[in-house]
Every structure is written in structure tokens, then in C-alpha cells.
């Protein structure tokens, strides 16, 4: 593989953005924040982040914002992930390994259904079943 230049990178990004704007002109904002402090890294949060990116790319959701933060404050439940999507409550999921990350993309982000078993923080009790 030859080394890519910054100019080539810029052109590739511009092309992808054109394609995405055609697919999603409203540009809705979906945000995924992964806790990546020392406890997160030790618990495998790097794999969690990689799984989110891979699943989102495979499903063509390349306009989603995926960020890292130092810690979401629930170290005992690492890896933890905060998910914000339009029309859904913002929740923090815990014990999110690669498989759960893919499930969050499929069920929460695409299917608009909360994964009740993995929620560690939520806005109101009446929104979540069995809690």
C-alpha cells in the first residue's frame, strides 16, 4: 500500500461527505460517547469503540458522531457508553463489550428500542421496562 498524502485524504473526505449529504440531507445528530479512562482501557473499551465504528460503517451510518471521554463516572460497569439519538432518551449503557456495542447500533440506534438489561443511567423510571 502506498502512503496516502494529506491532499488525497482531503479529497476522499470531501467525496464521502457529498455521498452522505445525498443520503441524509437533514443531517440528524446521533452521538455515541465511549468512556476511555484507565479503567475503561483495562476493561476493553478500545474493542468497544472499534466495534461501534465497524458496525456503524457496515450499516452506512457514517454521519454518527463517535467520541471518547476520560470516564463517564461508572467505573465498576466499564466499558460504559452514552448514546444520544433524536427521538430517544439519552442513556448510559454499562458492560458494553464488542457484541453489546453491535447490539446497541442494531436495536437502539436503528431499531429505536432501549437495551434495558444494560442501562446504568436513565432519565426516568417509567421509560424503561422492568426497573
Amino acid at each position: 500500500m502506498g502512503k496516502m498524502t494529506l491532499e488525497e485524504l482531503k479529497k476522499l473526505r470531501a467525496e464521502r461527505k457529498r455521498q452522505m449529504d445525498m443520503r441524509d440531507p437533514e443531517n440528524k445528530t446521533i452521538q455515541v460517547v465511549v468512556g476511555m479512562g484507565t479503567s475503561g482501557i483495562a476493561a476493553g473499551a478500545k474493542d468497544t469503540l472499534a466495534a461501534f465504528l465497524s458496525e456503524l460503517e457496515e450499516r452506512g451510518l457514517s454521519n454518527v458522531s463517535v467520541r471518547q471521554t476520560g470516564s463517564l463516572g461508572l467505573d465498576f460497569a466499564e466499558p460504559t457508553v452514552e448514546v444520544s439519538t433524536p427521538d430517544m432518551p439519552t442513556v448510559i449503557y454499562g458492560n458494553v463489550d464488542a457484541a453489546v456495542a453491535r447490539e446497541i447500533v442494531q436495536k437502539h440506534i436503528i431499531g429505536k428500542v432501549l437495551l434495558s438489561d444494560h442501562i446504568f443511567d436513565r432519565p426516568a423510571a417509567d421509560i424503561v421496562d422492568n426497573r
Binding site: M1, K3, E7, R13, M20, L53, S62, S65
Partner: peptide, 25 residues
């Protein structure tokens, strides 16, 4: 420089391209 070339560093598309760019280096 990478942020300038990509426009943002938090979208899935940008992160994927960043990964490909670094892998090529």
C-alpha cells in the same frame, strides 16, 4: 493537519478515513 484535511475528527466517516490514512503511513 489531519483535522484540516478531514473537517472533523468525530464522525464515523472521518475516523474510518483517519484509520486508513495512518495505516498507509
Amino acid at each position: 493537519e489531519l483535522a484540516d484535511a478531514l473537517g472533523d475528527l468525530d464522525s464515523v466517516a472521518s475516523i474510518g478515513l483517519l484509520r486508513d490514512f495512518i495505516a498507509s503511513q
